[in-house]
Amino acid sequence: MILSIKNLSVNYGLIPAIRNLSMEVGQGETVALIGANGAGKTTILRAVSGLIKLASGSVVFDGQDIARLKSHLIVRRGMSHVPERRGIFANLTVYENLLMGAYIRKLLPGDLDEVYSLFPILLERKKQIAGTLSGGEQQMLAISRALLSKPKLMLLDEPSLGLAPQITKSIFSIIQKINKAGTTVLLVEQNAQAALKISHRGYVLEVGEITHTDTSEALLTNDAVRKAYLGDH
């Protein structure tokens, strides 16, 4: 297991957001974490990447407990987190955003070629201020930026948020490509259908607790999951 979360609890003040949650991501997998708005998906990712404190529990990444590690050091261990709403540096150019993605490394020319070949539009927009990109392009930039730290594990928080279905589709196929190229992916989504289609396994989160977990194929055909998340009535 490249990531294993055990008995994780997170509180906002006195209010518990995540209760005693355990989940795992295996090397090479794409794991989907789905759930309604407010279920706690973002909270889990933020706890894993060190942005918020855990109330209790452990997070083991690549064999080491990172639960109390600062987030910039977790990145150095090989985890990259594409935050909800993408977190583009809107005041920087596309190229500068990519540079920041590679902050922990020495950027080699081939690295940029790699992301430009995934998302050719970024090469075209290289010198443009990132704040002027469309939502889809910003998501492409956010993913590229995360790739440039050469992560072992990539956390993606709702990459489909606010995107047209066609764009979501192409971004999801790129995520699949990234996974096939060897990066493990933990994909958080409200768009359960799309997420389960490209993932190996999935977890269903409801108000801070896992209610279902199975292979994505099985979840796609699970009645309860279909009713709640796949728009089947």
């Binding site: 977190g87 540096f89 920087l92 730290s149």
Partner: peptide, 16 residues
């Protein structure tokens, strides 16, 4: 400039 735009995301880039 990245930190002054968004310190949290800067952290996620591994920027100390």
């Amino acid at each position: 400039r990245a930190v002054s735009f968004d310190i949290e995301v800067a952290n996620l880039m591994g920027i100390p």
